[in-house]
Amino acid sequence: MEFNVINLFFNLLPALIVALVSVYFFSQYTKNEEGRRRFLLHKDNQKTALPLQLQAYERLTLLLERIAPSNLLLRVKPFSDDKDEYERLLLKTIEQEFEHNLTQQVYVTEECWNVIRTAKSATVSIIRKTSMNEKVTTSDKLRETILRDLMDHQTPSDAGLSYIKKEVAEII
């Protein structure tokens, strides 16, 4: 009886080893196939997502160009000499441009979107700060002062554009 149990054990041992090795290789194969399927799905998604992402970066580039103080001041002309009225017009134009592109945040990184928001806020701040200057009394003086002050400095839009270019270079 004892001999039969030991003999049975030695006869089943190779089958047990083959079964364990088979289970191991089958699980590895399954993991590999799952990874392959995920890769192919990701690759297919990239074909449709990448053009949308690039389009979002293009639109955000256009936004930054349109709210850049030099471009904004040339495009949006004052209706009168009232600097406060002109300030409100500039700020309203910036807000409209920004709101028009709000949905683009879905396609870009959170960090990129934060850079865009910061550029917009900094531009608004520049306009408000310049308007509060006591030496600025007319809308034309407001335009002139903003442009003169920005000649020596990088604009918020320039910083945002640099960031967008860096991020696009990483995804292409």
Rank of each mutant, 00 (worst) to 15 (best):
N114I: 05
I127T: 02
V115I: 12
H100P: 01
N45E: 12
R38K: 15
R128E: 14
Y57C: 06
P51S: 04
Q104D: 00
V23A: 13
A19H: 07
R88A: 13
R37P: 02
H42C: 08
H100A: 12
R117L: 10
N32G: 10
I126H: 05
T61I: 04
A49T: 14
T93Q: 14
E144V: 03
V124T: 12
Y24Q: 12
L72C: 01
A19P: 02
L54C: 06
K77Y: 09
E33D: 08
E144T: 08
K43V: 06
T145P: 03
V106C: 02
T123P: 00
D81N: 14
R128F: 04
F26P: 03
V23F: 11
L20Q: 09
F79E: 14
E33L: 13
P51I: 04
F39K: 15
S80V: 02
K135T: 10
F79K: 14
I116T: 00
M132P: 04
L64P: 00
C112G: 01
C112V: 07
T123Q: 03
L102E: 04
F79R: 14
E110V: 07
R38C: 06
K31M: 11
T123D: 00
K83F: 03
V136Y: 04
K31S: 10
V18F: 12
L62W: 11
R38F: 11
V124Q: 13
L20E: 08
N32A: 13
N114S: 12
S139H: 00
E65C: 07
K135F: 09
L89V: 09
Q55G: 08
A56D: 00
S131R: 14
L50V: 13
L89Q: 14
K47H: 08
F26G: 09
R59E: 01
V115D: 00
A68D: 15
L64H: 01
R37F: 07
L13I: 07
K129H: 12
L20S: 13
V76R: 05
A19L: 15
I127V: 10
